[in-house]
Simulated assay, not measured.
Amino acid sequence: MSTRLLVIADPVAGFKIHKDSTYAMLREANKRGWELWITLADDMRVQNGMVQTAAQRLTFTATQEYKHWFELAEPQHLALKDFSAVLMRKDPPFDQQYLYATHLLTLAEAQGARVFNPGQTLRDYNEKLAILKHPQFTAPTLVTQRAADIRAFLAEHGDVILKPLDGMGGMGIFRIRPDDANIGSIIEMLTANETATIMAQRYLPAIKDGDKRVLIIDGKPVDWCLARIPKAGETRGNLAAGGTGVARPLTAKDREIAETLGPQLAAKGLFLVGLDVIGENVTEINVTSPTCFQEITDQSGIDVAALFIDALERKLS
């Protein structure tokens, strides 16, 4: 019996196949003869106590052209437990609907589904707040919704980054310094007038050398990372914000961080993790839909998708 893989993702028609990591996973699984199914988180439901979804069989076409690389069959309502593996690959933001989806995943796991990453760990590991579990690798950090706290942190450190707790791709990230004329407005906007909790971190000058994405698969680091270099005039290295991705071998410090955190994260059930490392500090622990597979593969020769599917096969066996 072939391996039946269900991927919960955003609509496949929107995949940028030259760089999409979920596409790379699907392509590698297809090479191995896996049966591929795709669904949206919005299409999950509980009926007669069973977690189901409107899943569509996905097949690769011969053309491999953008937006024409796949064909989808008519939807079928199937139980999540009836698949060999379920990959949760929906992009953030981690909003209320995403939270509900994780609860359905947890219920499906209790019914026998094998979900990667599991619903409980997605809830436990907010991508920004999770670094607080590992203070030995973090820069000075503040979490608050109070303007006075942020101003005091800025006065202490002189140059800080402010970020929301639910974004992705660098959205809503600001760098502020004491002479910034817009401090008040930025704080008001990010905290929604002190009703939303945000994070402040001391600015790390090492960002000029890149915000490194270090991938961990089932507790073990990939040997190369992707350093995302900010474009001129930018603080953010995110590729979505115009950064340039440069693959590099892990430094000794990168490897120390990854080999320390990897087994701990795997023990919590996190199968795929993307650490964001600036200099010698972890700034985020990405667990919802870590990316950069193809960029690392294209520049290093390491087939990250193959490593991922290898590890998934071991897990399923």
Rank of each mutant, 00 (worst) to 15 (best):
A79G: 05
P164F: 05
I198T: 05
T291M: 11
H103Y: 15
A247M: 11
K315E: 14
L250H: 08
T141R: 07
K31E: 14
L265P: 01
M189H: 10
I187N: 03
Q299D: 14
I198P: 04
I229W: 13
S300G: 06
G119M: 00
F70R: 06
N238D: 08
N117G: 02
D20P: 02
R45N: 11
I131T: 15
K268R: 06
M189G: 07
I302Q: 11
L142W: 01
I257C: 03
K90P: 05
D124M: 03
T288I: 12
Q97P: 03
Q136N: 08
S185L: 12
A227E: 08
E295S: 14
G49W: 08
K268F: 02
F153L: 05
I296N: 00
W224A: 12
D298F: 13
D95T: 14
D42T: 14
M171E: 15
L275S: 00
I161D: 01
D180F: 07
W37Y: 14
N117L: 01
D209W: 10
A196P: 01
D43W: 13
P93M: 11
T195I: 08
Q201D: 09
P135Q: 00
E188M: 08
F15R: 09
L162K: 02
H134Y: 15
L105V: 02
D276A: 05
A206S: 13
L58F: 04
F153Y: 07
I216M: 04
M199P: 09
E28T: 02
G245T: 07
V51E: 00
T195W: 07
S2P: 12
A192S: 14
K19I: 09
W69F: 15
T59Y: 06
A258T: 09
L132T: 07
T61R: 15
M199G: 09
L58T: 05
K81D: 10
Q294H: 10
L265H: 03
G112Y: 11
K315P: 01
R228G: 14
A311D: 02
K90A: 08
I296Y: 03
L307H: 07
M44T: 12
K31M: 12
I161K: 00
A24Y: 04
A55S: 13
I131H: 11
A227H: 06
I229Y: 13
I17D: 03
T297M: 06
E256Q: 11
K133D: 06
L215R: 09
